[in-house]
Design a protein around this nucleic acid. Structure first.
Lengths: 258, 258
DNA sequence: AAGGTCGACTTGTCTAGAGGAGCTACTGAG
DNA sequence: CTCAGTAGCTCCTCTAGACAAGTCGACCTT
C-alpha cells in the first residue's frame, strides 16, 4: 500500500489530494471491499497535516459511498451491493408462457429472490401526499403493504406500496399471501386492464426518516427509488416507495411486445 | 424565521440539532427554493457554538442535497430539478398512432424537450468495459453519441450512448440529425426487431470523473442513471450512461400493450 | 476456566483561532 | 456620469488541541 506526498504548491487543496490518493487505492484494487483504511493517526503522521484535514479527506470518500467509518474500529472499504430484480412477476410469467427462451435465461440469471423479513398490511386513512398520488378523495381509505427484504442476512430494501381500499378490499391483496403472480395478477383477475400501463420511476436522495427506517449508518449514501404504476386508463392503482440500502443497484424492466 | 436553542443535555449532538432545525425550516416551507440560509456568522452567534460545529450542520444538509453553498455569496436552498421524459420516442409514436388519448395527454403533460447543448459523435475503439457491455470482440469499433442537455439554461443531464459500429455505420445514426423517431426508429428501419426488449436501469452515486463532466460543485449529491437496452434476441444494440445533475429526477417509462 | 477490569487504539464531537478567496455594494476619483 | 478601488460580507481551508465514546485484546481476579 503506497501513499504519496502532498504538493503544497498545487491548486488542489491538501485534503482533496489525500482523498484522491485514498480513492486511487480503492480504484486500483490495492484496497478491496472489507479492507481497512489507514487510521487517522497514521495518515496524520504520514502527511504531516492536522486531524481535521485527514478527516475531511475521508469524509469525501464517505460521501461518495466508497468507505464506511465504524466508531471505535476503523474505516472500511464498502461492500457494493448489487440487487437485480424484475419489475413485475407478471412480465416474467407472460414471457415464460410465450416460450421466449432468451428472456427466461435472462430471468434465471439475474433473478433475485429476497427473503421477506417483515410484512405489515393495514387499511385506513393515508397521508395527503399518498392520497394525492393515488388521486383519491379526502375520505377514501388506503391499503398499505410494507415489506423489508434481506439478502445474505443484510437489509437491502424496504418498500411500502399503497392501493385504494375500494380496489383491494375483499381480495387477497389485503392478505399476506397474495397467491401466484402477486397483486398484479389479482388485479387482472378483478378485471383491471393492465396490458399496458405507465410506470414512473424517480430516484432521489433519502430523507432522514427513510434513513431511520433502514437503520442506516449516518453518512452512508443510498438512493431512493420511487415507483408509481398506472393502469390503462391512467388511473393510479398502486404507488410504491422503494428504498434501497445500497450505493448501487440494478432494476431490470422487461418491456413486453405489444 | 425561527431558530430554537440547543439542548446540551440531549443525546443528539449539537451539530445535528442545528441541522434538524435548519431542515425543519425547509420542510415546513419557511425557507423555499432559492432562499438564503442564515450565514455561518449568524448561526455561530445565535447558537453560541464554534465555527466547525455550524459548518458540520450545514454540511449535513448539503449531503442531503437540500442546500448548495456558494463561495463568497451564501448557502441557498436548492432548487429541486424534476426532469421527466419518455424512455423512448418509439413508445410515444406508437401510442399516438393507436389513438390512445390518455397516454397522449400524459405525454403532453410530462413531456420534456430539453435543449441539446453539445452533440459529439465519434467512431473508433471503445473502453473494454463498453465493449463488454455490448458483448463485442476486441477489435470491433463503436459509435459513441455524447450529448448534454440544458433546461432553463442550466445543465441538467449528460448522456453518452454507444452502439456497435457494424450496426450504425452508413446509417443516419452516425449523423447529428437522426431523423424522425430517433435512433430507435432507424434501427427498426434497418430490420431490427425492437418490438420487445429488455431495459436494465441502474442508479448509483457518480464517480469523480462524472462529477467533472457536469461541472458539479463539490459536495452536491446527484444520482447517475445507467441504462442498457437489448433487442429481442438479447443482443445489446445500445448502452447508454446518463448522468442527471439533480438531487431528484423522474424517468417515465411507457410499457406498451403486447 | 470464566469473568471482569483496564488500557491502547479507534472514530466522534467540539473549541478557538488564522488566513484565503470569491462576491457585492459603496465610495471616491476622474 | 463612469469606473476603479476598497471594505465588508460570504464560504473555504487549515491548525492544534481537548474530551467523549466505542472496540478489542491483554491481563488479573475469582
Amino acid at each position: 500500500m503506497q501513499l504519496g506526498a502532498i504538493d503544497r504548491a498545487s491548486d488542489r487543496p491538501p485534503y482533496r489530494q489525500i482523498a484522491d490518493q485514498l480513492r486511487d487505492l480503492i480504484d486500483s484494487g490495492a484496497l478491496v471491499a472489507g479492507d481497512k483504511l489507514p487510521s487517522e493517526a497514521v495518515l496524520i503522521e504520514h502527511y504531516g497535516v492536522a486531524r481535521m484535514t485527514v478527516r475531511q479527506a475521508v469524509q469525501e470518500l464517505r460521501n461518495e459511498g466508497r468507505v464506511v467509518a465504524e466508531h471505535g474500529k476503523g474505516t472500511y472499504v464498502r461492500q457494493p451491493v448489487q440487487v437485480r430484480r424484475l419489475a413485475s412477476e407478471r412480465f416474467a410469467r407472460r414471457h415464460r408462457e410465450a416460450g421466449l427462451a432468451a428472456f427466461s435465461v435472462e430471468a434465471q440469471k439475474t433473478g433475485f429472490t429476497p427473503n421477506v423479513d417483515q410484512l405489515e398490511i393495514a387499511t385506513g386513512p393515508a397521508a395527503p401526499e399518498i392520497r394525492d398520488r393515488l388521486r383519491l378523495g379526502d375520505d377514501e381509505e388506503v391499503v398499505s403493504r410494507s415489506r423489508r427484504y434481506l439478502a445474505d442476512g443484510q437489509p437491502v430494501e424496504t418498500a411500502v406500496s399503497y392501493l385504494p381500499a375500494s380496489v383491494a378490499a375483499g381480495s387477497r391483496i389485503v392478505e399476506a399471501d397474495t397467491g401466484p403472480g402477486g397483486i398484479y395478477a389479482r388485479l387482472e383477475d378483478m378485471g383491471f386492464e393492465l396490458d399496458h400501463f405507465t410506470e414512473e420511476v424517480s430516484a432521489r436522495m433519502p430523507t432522514a426518516e427513510e434513513r431511520r427506517r433502514l437503520q442506516l449508518t449516518d453518512g452512508v449514501p443510498v438512493v431512493v427509488l420511487v415507483r408509481t404504476a398506472y393502469d390503462t386508463t391512467g388511473r393510479p392503482l398502486e404507488v410504491c416507495d422503494t428504498l434501497k440500502a445500497a450505493p448501487a443497484y440494478v432494476l431490470e424492466y422487461e418491456v413486453p411486445a405489444r
